[in-house]
């Protein structure tokens, strides 16, 4: 008989469809794994990174597939909105993986309100670590990223924005 810890372990096999170097557990997308008497089954709770994240359906299907691969054909997946996903839930290991892939990880503290006043954070180039970077566009290849360029090494890069 599997327990919740086993299932958490299984779910590490599920890649984030848009950033496949990360799995859905280290992204903080999986919120809970619970045995529910009412369903007489396991329920995996997931939460979207962004409301309009087009990968959500795929993630749900991939989670179901992963559970089925481990013999849990009847398990359920539930989506919740609250509490809202935040980049603060991404593990340090996940941030390091992002950096190594050339994506600048989120600068901590999603509660920062400076954004409203037009204050910008200092974003370090994931390649040469220079702080001399410029934002090219607020929205990058996916909703969760912005496009930057490094003024020193001239490398364009994605920044995983804080929310």
């Amino acid at each position: 008989m599997v327990n919740a810890d086993d299932i958490w372990k299984f779910l590490e096999e599920v890649e984030d469809p848009e950033i496949p170097i990360l799995n859905v557990v280290e992204m903080g997308i999986v919120r809970d794994v619970q045995w529910r008497e009412v369903h007489n089954n396991w329920v995996v709770t997931i939460t979207p990174t962004y409301s309009g994240c087009p990968a959500m359906k795929t993630i749900e299907e991939d989670v179901m597939q992963c559970l089925a691969d481990h013999g849990l054909n009847e398990a359920k997946v539930e989506t919740i909105l609250s509490p809202p996903w935040t980049t603060d839930w991404m593990t340090a290991e996940a941030c390091e993986k992002l950096r190594q892939t050339g994506i600048a990880p989120p600068e901590k503290n999603s509660a920062d309100k400076g954004l409203l006043m037009g204050v910008r954070k200092e974003i370090k180039c994931p390649r040469c670590h220079s702080k001399q970077t410029t934002m090219v566009s607020q929205f990058g290849s996916t909703a969760c990223k912005s496009l930057y360029k490094c003024n020193d090494c001239l490398e364009p890069f994605d920044y995983f924005k804080c929310i």
């Binding site: 962004y50 409301s51 309009g52 909105l81 609250s82 509490p83 809202p84 996903w85 935040t86 999603s110 954004l115 409203l116 037009g118 607020q138 929205f139 909703a143 924005k161 929310i163």
Partner: peptide, 19 residues
């Protein structure tokens, strides 16, 4: 819960349009 989720996104929409 809807408000807490959405405001994080809207903060970026606001900044984009303001810029």
């Amino acid at each position: 819960g809807f408000a807490a989720k959405s405001i994080k996104e809207v903060k970026y929409h606001f900044q984009h349009s303001r810029d």
